[in-house]
Amino acid sequence: MKSFRKLGKNLGVLAVASLVFAGLLALVPLSTSRAGQKGNEAKGKFYFKQTCKSCHIKGEKGGEVTPLNKTQAQWQSYFAKGKHMKGTEPLTKYMTPEQLNDALTFLYNHAVDSPQPETCGK
């Protein structure tokens, strides 16, 4: 029983913790969805290429990832979840929230359903 109570207590702590975390999470997507387009796209590209692209290229363990892998909404929700490696580790392990915001901006702006106004001279 004790152990159960302990478990329950732990569960309670967990629940509270998860509630708090969920609340935090809820705040994060709100802030990122607003800032999703307000980060620095150029810097985001830099962080994405420097950090993500070290594994996420063809033939590496991460497999190729480009902005075109997801739609704008998918990118937003992915960053909102903030989880990496099938949800096993937080994205913040790799970048600061600010950097993540920049990276999201880059990915969002070039997502598969983003407007792709092409230019000349390419």
Partner: peptide
């Protein structure tokens, strides 16, 4: 490829 450098602020 691309030469990477930390860019400027927007």
């Amino acid at each position: 490829g691309e030469l990477m450098f930390l860019p400027w602020d927007d």
